[in-house]
Amino acid sequence: MGWQGSAFCRSPPQAVQAPEPAPGVLYLVGTPIGNLADLSPRARQVLAGVQRIACEDTRRSGLLLHQLGLRHKEQGPRLVSFHAHNQTARIPELLAALAAGEALAVISDAGLPGISDPGEVLVAAARTAGHNVICIPGPSAVTTALVSSGLPCGRFCFEGFLPPKTNQRRQRLQELQTEQRTMVLFEAPHRLLDLLDDLLAVLGDRPLRVARELTKKHEEQVGPSVSAAIEHFRRTPPQGECTLVLAGALPPEPLAWDSAALSAELQELQRAGHSSNAAAKLLAERTGHSKRELYALLHQES
């Protein structure tokens, strides 16, 4: 059971009391990443009631709303395109609509808006302008792929789409070589094998799951390693955007314990202005030794 269902939860979930959507509020609404049944009743209510919906692709979102029974021909909320190429011009228009009292929803092509899409910029602008922003939680490829991967979920980082060019992508992977948290990446199908080859070359044959068609009938999670995924996708070309869950780097092996050398390094850190506690922490991170033991060593020498 996660902490949300334990004693750490301050209050139990309850139905929303205030009517939604409320005027002048920006709603971030999570939409299905594959299975239409994943749209929540609250999300349906908000999407049906707002005056306009900002979306990446009006045709695709129009089809989604039609499939959900929320838009019939030209009836229903007004759809406005909002993507990376028009966000600078569109944001003032959307802020003006909020200021005029409109309820506004933002959706992505699939999943929770604001992650690897322009929703993030609009939220910042709305907050700066003093507007209320409410997230209607919903499906997310990031967490769906992560928790079903079998890899550690307690600590993870999201890296999104890496640079499309090989040199830049490998440089970014080199920066991630020592990252010990589980990593979640996005990739387009036509670049997936290139990314997998770079993962193998730069980070080695780590545990990996490549998830595609999440929540759909033919959901697929390919692994359990980088090399196994390469072999699979060379036989079966990937289709659809993929979410990769990659194991983090193993913790470094502790260096041999050398009291004299470690004590000298601790004293050097103190001379540089670090407190005893900070010096022990920095050296623990550098050597892999216990911070408590290093702190005790420092005071033994005092």
Rank of each mutant, 00 (worst) to 15 (best):
L104P: 04
D258F: 15
L246W: 01
S227C: 12
F233E: 00
M183H: 09
S116T: 05
T215A: 06
L173C: 05
A264Y: 08
D117H: 03
A100T: 05
R71F: 07
P13G: 10
A211H: 02
A37W: 06
A260P: 05
A280I: 03
F158M: 10
V16F: 09
R292F: 12
R206K: 08
F8V: 12
L244Q: 01
D38N: 12
L36E: 13
P252N: 08
V184A: 04
L79Q: 05
S108T: 14
V147F: 04
Q4C: 04
L98F: 05
T128K: 15
R292E: 13
A84L: 12
A211S: 13
A260M: 10
V184P: 02
R172Q: 14
R10H: 12
E213H: 12
L208F: 00
L185H: 11
A124Y: 06
R155C: 06
P118I: 01
G138Q: 00
V29Y: 09
Q270R: 14
D197H: 12
G160R: 01
A256R: 14
H66E: 15
Q221R: 14
S275R: 07
Q17G: 03
A89L: 13
A264N: 11
Q45C: 09
L246S: 00
G119S: 11
T88D: 11
R10Y: 11
A141L: 04
P224A: 09
A272H: 13
G160Q: 01
Q168I: 01
R206S: 01
L104N: 04
L200I: 01
E301T: 14
F158I: 10
L283W: 08
L122I: 11
L196T: 00
A284D: 02
